[in-house]
Write a protein that binds this DNA or RNA. Structure first.
Lengths: 242, 242
DNA sequence: TTGACTTATATGTCTAGACATATAATCGTA
DNA sequence: TACGATTATATGTCTAGACATATAAGTCAA
């Protein structure tokens, strides 16, 4: 029980309260369902005002570590839906982070009126024009991933004049389009002839597929399919309490 | 510009302030790098005390939507590292959520002193005993995934006496072990003979592999490998602003 | 021009109150 | 016993101040 008389006050008080509680939850001392002390008890224990403990508890609640119920108190939440933060870095960043030489190659770029297939893929009823891009990323000259992308020009008009022969469309979008939402679908396929050639792997070799669909406030921006050699590439998702 | 005289006060004031700012960021009206109004300006605009706007801004900062810098002000953050929330549901929950019949089958359960390979897999220097479990999950009698798991008994002693013939080890752990951290590695392989038979797919068919390594405060709990038929199963990761 | 010092200022934290509101618990009644 | 009304209480929000602190910007000297 760390009391208010704890002299090491490098972190601020509310942060120490939050850390104290978090620690008890993480170590299992206060298991899921456990009622943590009432605010007025913490006020007494730490000798501070209620706003201070309230701030600590509010942050824990925002982080889904505890659940607050009026009149009842605050309770440790159980690890809910198993979820993880999947870090899907910009491919260029990912490769350079590995200390390998990044290579980019534009295979094709077509500007066209949206076909029925394009509309289906972008999930829009009617679209004007789209840009269809096919390109390849490599690490130290070795094929790393092939990308097949569609950009909705009605959402991102400036993409029509962007030069994708040198800058990958993913990087370009990241720097030119504000906050977005996205949905990723990860699956596995075996390489067909075309994929095998593009990735320089054997036909029938496993490939990891990431389909990413990106929009901003109900407006589709882009749909992309990334194909990685499945036995060499790995996606790492880190999960922490939740 | 919504002023303090806005009468629709169903949500509380600080939530409205937060929502107002969030909306401007999401729509791109305030692009990344834009300096949002100073606290004292928001105080004037909404006619409230500084603590109220501070709470709104603090939550936006905690959600990584804005960055606060002393003396400089608060700024809209740019979509940082592309990351996504990957929902990896408990398999039973996942299947029942799809409205399909869940089936579970324990293939083998062995209690043994940890071998060198076990220690390697669990990432521990020395371990006492472990439980090795192999099982299969099915949806409407069709194989859905095969699971190959190792539980460190020095961390979870009660797992030695748990009955895994009826309850899947994943569900059991979820309910008996408090907050954990985990790391997932996702990759693709092609089915070998044994896998093909277990999943009732063709040899050479693509499989999605999830390797999950779980620990609690630096203490390994379990390591599991899940194999899914890759062309039928999909992992969906949703990403929202950040 | 550059570096060191000073100052102004926006955020960070905190207080000691207040009233609002949802709801668990109690009490009373059918 | 079951149900409806009442009450007590923990959290939710808010105020009008306060002092602390990091730092951008300005000032001045080498």
């Amino acid at each position: 029980m760390s009391l208010a008389t704890d002299a090491s006050d490098k972190p601020t008080l509310y942060k120490r309260i939050r850390a104290d509680i978090e620690k008890r939850i993480l170590t299992g001392e206060w298991p899921p369902g456990h009622r943590i002390p009432f605010e007025h008890e913490l006020v007494a224990r730490y000798g501070c005002s209620r706003m201070t403990v309230n701030k600590a508890l509010s942050e824990l609640a925002q982080a889904d570590l505890i659940e607050r119920r009026r009149r009842a108190g605050s309770f440790v939440r159980r690890p809910q839906h198993q979820s993880a933060v999947l870090k899907i870095a910009d491919i260029r960043a990912e490769i350079t982070a590995l200390g390998r030489g990044y290579g980019y190659e534009l295979i094709s770029r077509k500007l066209r009126a949206a076909t029925a297939a394009d509309r289906e893929r972008l999930g829009v009823k009617k679209a004007g024009k789209v840009v269809a891009i096919s390109c390849r990323h490599s690490a130290d000259k070795v094929p790393f991933a092939v990308e097949d992308r569609l950009i909705d020009l009605s959402s991102v008009p400036s993409a029509a004049s962007a030069d994708f022969s040198r800058e990958p469309p993913g990087s370009w979008l990241l720097h030119h389009v504000p906050w977005t939402e996205a949905e990723h679908t990860i699956s596995a396929i075996v390489a067909d002839d075309r994929t095998a050639e593009a990735l320089d792997i054997a036909v029938g070799a496993p490939c990891l597929v990431i389909d990413r669909y990106t929009w901003r406030s109900a407006r589709t921006i882009t749909a992309v399919r990334l194909l990685y050699p499945g036995d060499s590439h790995r996606l790492v998702a880190r999960f922490k309490g939740g």
